[in-house]
Design a protein around this nucleic acid. Structure first.
Lengths: 332, 332
DNA sequence: TTGTATGCGTTATCAA
DNA sequence: TTGATAACGCATACAA
């Protein structure tokens, strides 16, 4: 491989000077600057960023760890992150954990080996101990959507509590008084917030919060399906159901169809998180949506500021949820 | 930062030995192996992969360059790549070009600085010259979905030609004889193959291929919308339309709605590439789908084999398209 | 089986 | 303003 030494030789200067020109530092005379630039052009030399990061102690790399690369919620966030990062010449390494803590741990270890400058993560884990123990205290961490226990770090999320309230408000407005809920994955902060929001909203309307109306989900299709199956098996099933995310809703939908029922005629179904393309193809599922792209951009922003030392305390950015009314819920 | 030298000191051995233990090479006595391992454990030391790659001349990094991170077609492919890569301890850097050649060029330059081991790319460009001129001849390249001109490299794609034929067969089977076509982005190989397939299939049925029935698209929503608008403005519009990808179909759909028409009652619409989640929410759009996840995995595989020197000539892997019949096309 | 010395491609420090 | 020289953290050829 050709290095700055080769360039230096050709330009009749030292390697240090070449380095200075490449990073356009001051203290290089215009003359030598041009001389070196010419050689750089002629040879088409491209410096080795890895070698550079060895001395600079910056890799200009962000790691993004998500639990489900299948979910547009996360891919859109990645999109947002990538946009900001590319503009700053920062590489984005993507890792998928499949909601699996073991995979997450492996990914973290791996990313630490690469000495990523920052970690942006929607963790699959209940607690954040393993994150710290893998990354150490120094690497900036931005939590995405989920806040593991015992982890003080920047956080970008949406107002899950309020989101649940919005959905309940909406269903109650349609006359529903028996509202089921398919919870998210156990031990995830988002799961708890959405569930709490649901409970409180019911209370607001003087509706009893029956334990049997709450099914366990896992933020995936299959969990949504099973949760819905459980609700439908009830002697007195709900007239409407809230799924804790988009994939659960899809699973729930398939369960409903399996039972020969229709949405919204026989049962209303709403959920957290949009599937934008689906709604463009056919505006069906009523949801509360998060500003995903923006969340990604904000997360990247927070990471950058941490790197620049422009922050002291952990910050929490809470975005608004928006109700997108479509056709999956009906009046009862 | 702590290095293998620190470990060496603590373990009472040389750095070389520590390196050997970490990479578990042979020629290390069990005794010292254990001794070093213990220190490694106790300190929780994690080696610096960047430093390592400097000497090894392998970064264990793949670059994935796609034109549209918004399209599940590409994110699913990324998913497939990531799976293979993670299993081999290879990092995946994702770059989005927005179908913009300039962004692509910048991304390539950037990725070359990182000395990625391989490039997996769905290029936004007509020709592949800039790819070679950025990357050089040595870095393995795997072309995804699209084959820029003048670029000899491995290629993973689906049978676009046959895909078009499948769609035409299907529509003709429904009685359509006036089939419109919204082309893909100009200058992309996929665009041409799909269009050619369409033409040949029409011919097969003795149907005239009218130029006015072919509208220009760009693989994005807006292009699909405009293409469809143009077709609908025809004095004698088609009874069915094929869009060159999923996003174009969505745009086309919105155009159709704007004109107060319905699918499939007033017009049939089918396209290339699925939107899986949409079909799960509501099985609407009839498509020919590609095995996306697999394509990603195969692409990663090809890259790996190139790295291992297990290949000579460029290889071309062509996958089958599958018709997924739903409700967006009707009998005429 | 282990250690020494050197190199990987940059940048930073210090003199000149 | 420029150039030696020594890091950066690790791997490898060679010697022991």
């Amino acid at each position: 491989m050709t290095s700055i030494y080769d360039i230096a030789k050709q330009a009749g200067v030292s390697a240090a000077t070449v380095s200075r020109v490449i990073n356009n530092e001051r203290y290089v005379s215009l003359k030598t600057q041009e001389k070196v630039q010419r050689v750089l052009q002629d040879t088409g030399f491209i410096p080795n960023a890895n070698a550079s990061s060895l001395t600079k102690k910056r890799t200009n790399t962000f790691a993004v760890v998500v639990p489900d690369l299948t979910n547009p919620f996360f891919t859109e966030i990645i999109h947002g992150i990538e946009g900001q990062a590319a503009a700053r010449k920062i590489a984005v390494i993507v890792s998928n954990t499949d909601e699996n803590i073991d995979k997450e741990r492996k990914a973290l270890r791996f990313l630490t080996e690469r000495r990523v400058d920052a970690l942006i993560i929607a963790s699959a884990a209940r607690s954040g101990d393993h994150i710290i123990s893998c990354l150490g205290e120094d690497t900036p961490i931005v939590l995405l959507d989920r806040q593991p226990q015992g982890l003080k770090a920047d956080l970008v999320r949406s107002d899950d509590h309020r989101g649940a309230e919005i959905l309940v408000d909406y269903l109650v407005g349609l006359g529903h008084r028996k509202i089921g809920f398919i919870a998210g994955k156990r031990g995830i902060s988002t799961t708890k917030l959405r569930l709490d929001g649901y409970r409180l909203a019911l209370e607001k309307y003087g509706l009893e919060c029956q334990a049997e109306l709450i099914a366990q989900g896992d933020f995936k299709k299959e969990g949504g399906r099973e949760g819905m199956l459980a609700l439908l098996a009830l002697p007195n099933p709900p007239t409407s159901v809230i799924a804790s995310n988009n994939l659960e809703a899809i699973g729930a939908l398939s369960a409903i169809r399996e039972m020969g029922l229709r949405v919204p005629e026989d049962l209303s179904l709403v959920c957290f998180d949009d599937i934008e393309l689906a709604s463009l193809v056919y505006p069906f599922l009523t949801v509360v949506a998060q500003p995903v792209r923006t969340m990604g951009a904000v997360a990247a922003q927070l990471a950058l500021e941490r790197l620049d030392g422009k922050a002291e305390q952990p910050r929490e950015v809470v975005m608004q949820m928006t109700l997108l009314e479509r056709r999956s819920a009906g009046r009862v």
